[in-house]
């Protein structure tokens, strides 16, 4: 017990260390909002997973024939079919861009979330061998990652609002919906609409971030149990780690699916007049 306290960092230090991003400045971000800082690890892993998702889909698309499909093609086709069905049911209008967005979002987030399955210490420890001292590998467990995507969805919502209703029509809707067309109600309507847009976007990103962040944190706590290097700790680590990892399979897929569905729902709302 004494040796572990000497060599291993204290529990608090361990958690804080694992929750610190690798930034371009090399220091931990001090302010809550600082636009000069960029999380290199989040960016690296999200782009990597994006590229992986793209490669995965491109391979399937390359092999796509109308003949008997192989396993990979069958799997991707099932996803495409699922996304196509959902988008058809939710979005009424031109879906040439929207359906691919939903597919991309689903597979990309699925891949990023799946990074959580890797042992929490594996990649940070490897990075440490190369002199990189901070590494968080799950991009969706970074608020910037999750909110960045929900912000993209917000932009798409605004774009389709203007495209479908025209700029005038959209502004008209901003002031007359949801309560009605009356000068006294204009400010209330506008405030409600603004709240709606902000709430949608923030909750969209926060939901994904919260789930993945919590999942990552629980994995770290379980790893802490193992790091005590006692029989009980080892046993607890194995049992709790297995249970949480199995449960996490559900969370990883479900969160990706929910993010995709909400993307479609929000863009679908932009297509409908109040």
């Amino acid at each position: 017990m004494s040796s572990s306290t000497e060599n291993a960092p204290a529990a608090g230090d361990y958690i804080v260390h694992h929750l610190t991003h690798l930034t371009n400045t090399g220091h931990k971000q001090a302010a809550i909002i600082d636009w000069t800082i960029i999380n290199v690890d989040t960016l690296f892993w999200s782009v990597s997973m994006g590229v992986l998702a793209i490669i995965f889909m491109v391979i399937a698309a390359r092999r796509a024939t109308s003949g008997v499909p192989g396993r990979l093609q069958g799997a991707v086709e099932m996803l495409v079919e699922m996304v196509e069905t959902q988008s058809k049911a939710i979005v009424h209008g031109d879906r040439r861009f929207i359906a691919p967005v939903a597919l991309t979002v689903f597979i990309w987030i699925l891949f990023m979330n799946a990074l959580d399955f890797l042992p929490v210490d594996l990649l940070p420890r490897i990075a440490e061998l190369f002199g990189v001292h901070h590494q968080r590998i799950v991009p969706t467990a970074d608020l910037n990652g999750a909110l960045g995507m929900s912000l993209g969805v917000l932009l798409l919502c605004l774009y389709y609002n203007i495209k479908i209703k025209g700029f005038g029509g959209w502004v008209h809707e901003l002031f007359t919906a949801p309560f009605g067309n009356h000068p006294l109600l204009y400010p209330v309507n506008f405030i409600m609409q603004m709240i709606e847009f902000v709430a949608k976007t923030v909750s969209h990103g926060m939901r994904l971030f919260g789930n993945m962040y919590a999942g990552e944190l629980v994995f770290m706590l379980i790893a802490l149990m193992g790091s005590t290097a006692t029989a009980l700790g080892f046993f607890g680590h194995v049992v709790a780690g297995s249970i949480w990892a199995i449960f996490h399979i559900l969370i990883v897929v479900l969160q990706a699916f929910i993010f995709m569905m909400l993307t479609l729902v929000y863009i679908g709302q932009a297509h409908e007049s109040h």
Binding site: T23, Q29, A31, I32, I33, D34, W35, T36, I37, I38, N39, T42, L43, S46, V47, G50, A53, I54, F97, P100, V101, T104, V105, W108, P139, D142, L143, N144, G145, L147, G148, M149, L151, G152, L155
Partner: peptide
């Protein structure tokens, strides 16, 4: 914390889509 990663992620989102 929020930082410029937000916008990078936003750009990646559109490129992938």
């Amino acid at each position: 914390n929020l930082n410029a990663t937000l916008f990078a992620q936003l750009a990646v989102f559109f490129v992938l889509a």
